[in-house]
Amino acid sequence: MTEYMLQEVEQMIPPQYRRRKNGAGETPQDLFSQKHTALVTKGESWMKNYMLVATLIATIVFPAAFTLPGGYKQNTGIPFFPQ
């Protein structure tokens, strides 16, 4: 389980209830981890896929943002602007 999810659960549960256990001896954190295992796995998979896409987009956009229109003169390296 990610640290962020644990923090969210802790915010929702009053402090006096965080350490209490049910009849099976489980804390709220234990129950949350057991019930949402599939959700965490699905979220991690989604994040990996979309981080790859975001990285590819950033790789293309970054050079495009800093390239001057018209390009550079091959001999001198000085930029020229089309007119």
Rank of each mutant, 00 (worst) to 15 (best):
T55K: 12
E26P: 07
E26S: 01
L39Q: 01
G25D: 11
Q11E: 13
H36L: 07
T67L: 04
A38M: 08
Q11S: 15
K21R: 07
N22M: 14
L31R: 13
R19W: 13
N22K: 10
F62E: 04
P63W: 12
G23L: 00
I13Q: 12
W46F: 08
L39A: 02
L39H: 11
Q7G: 07
F32Q: 04
E10Q: 05
G70H: 01
I13S: 06
Q11V: 08
T27D: 11
T27E: 04
Q16I: 02
N22T: 14
Q29M: 15
R19Q: 11
M51R: 02
S33F: 14
K21G: 04
L31I: 05
T37R: 06
M47N: 09
W46M: 12
R19S: 07
G23R: 00
M51D: 11
T67E: 01
V9G: 04
F66T: 07
P63H: 07
Q16C: 03
G23E: 07
K48F: 14
M5D: 02
Q29V: 13
G70P: 03
V9S: 11
M47Y: 03
T37K: 05
G23F: 00
V61A: 01
S33I: 05
M47W: 08
G25Q: 04
E8N: 10
V40H: 07
I13F: 15
T37W: 10
T67F: 12
E26T: 06
M5H: 07
G43F: 03
L6Y: 15
L39D: 08
Q7R: 06
V40M: 03
W46K: 15
A24Q: 07
E8K: 02
F32G: 08
M47D: 11
I13D: 03
R18Y: 14
Q11G: 10
L31E: 05
L56C: 08
Q34N: 11
T27H: 11
P69K: 11
W46H: 12
A24H: 02
K48C: 12
L52K: 10
Q11R: 15
T55S: 08
K42E: 14
T27S: 10
P14K: 10
L31N: 01
F32R: 08
Q34W: 07
P15E: 05
V9T: 15
